[in-house]
Design a binder for these strands. Structure first.
Lengths: 185, 185
DNA sequence: TCCGTCATGTAAATGGTTACATGATTCG
DNA sequence: CGAATCATGTAACCATTTACATGACGGA
């Protein structure tokens, strides 16, 4: 799958839930998928033109007063979406700045490393909080909504990963404290 | 921090462990940092020229018979490295193809989702195996090696994350099985 | 000698962010 | 009216991968 079709995939997928403008699309991706996906305007608008050109989405008229362009998925778009979803997952090469620094932590010093890990712990806590909120939202939607179980699955992925991060942070903080004490002697 | 200095950071850091050629540098990054970092030749060689130009690294002569260029960190390079490490961590925007597909799993179908998660479980298992090997290696190096505790820290990060992934996969597989059964009726 | 690996590099294409420009709509 | 937000787009820039070209070296 070419990389740009990753954006197509996300846009088409988001439009399965509701017709949206480019702006709203971005907001929806940010708020609902923010933990594991991102798109910028510079990607979204060209994608909308492309997909519209190709007949995979179309303008959703009749919204009344609005001058803005609300897009809706076409039947062709829906089958293209499934096609894209079936393609092998292309993952971006990993680039974890925290672990890179820690791997060479001796050059940075144990105290600075400790600071980085403490920050990471705060981030994980924050993530856990926002996931708790997302879980409440997802659990309170209409139980007949076919999206609901899948939303919970992705929320749970975030929870597992954030909890693991917190445990690792705690373990690492004590390990670094031990290292700092032994360096001090 | 400009994005390119991320590569500089990785290259400088890797050279703290031992002098290396561009080729060996890439191999080392792949094998030791592969789980959380990556660099391609197209990045490494220009970086080596740049860093060499700037006096942060230099050719390590006297290796005997070799025609290849082995680079070594200069004192300036070492302080630049610490400077780079102290800069705020810039993280690439998330792009998790698996979670994107699962979030819109209703469009893909529960059975196909199950396949994706089963694959993810296998990946996590493999990761855990290779981390076990890395741990054995790291635990068997000279205990006086100042790098050792930091290597163990990053290995532990991988282990926590891989175990969390496995638990999530198991939980998700049973959830999807339930969903598949209920769809079948 | 021939193959595989070690080694160095470059050019094109890609994918993506960022910053900017512009204007409509809504609400106080 | 004025501010905030909604909305659409584009252009420049950046990092990065990929594919390719080239050749040395060591061992079967």
């Amino acid at each position: 799958m070419s990389r740009s079709s990753q954006t197509d995939l996300a846009v088409l997928a988001a439009l399965t839930v509701a017709p949206l403008t480019g702006y709203a699309l971005r907001a929806a991706i940010k708020s609902h998928l923010g933990a594991f996906w991102s798109e910028s305007f510079g990607q979204i608008y060209p994608a909308l033109s492309r997909l519209s050109e190709a007949g995979l989405i179309e303008l959703d008229e009749g919204q009344g007063r609005r001058a803005s362009s609300v897009y809706r998925l076409t039947p062709t778009g829906r089958s293209r979406l499934v096609e894209l979803m079936r393609e092998p997952i292309t993952s971006t090469p990993p680039r974890n700045g925290l672990l890179l620094r820690l791997f060479f932590g001796d050059a940075l010093g144990a105290i600075a490393c400790r600071g980085l890990v403490a920050e990471a712990r705060v981030d994980a806590e924050r993530m856990l909080d926002s996931l708790a909120e997302a879980r409440r939202d997802a659990e309170s939607v209409d139980p007949g909504n076919p999206h609901a179980p899948y939303w919970l699955i992705t929320i749970s992925a975030g929870e597992h990963s954030a909890r693991a991060a917190m445990h690792w942070c705690d373990e690492t903080l004590t390990a670094l404290d031990r290292l700092i004490r032994s360096e001090a002697t």
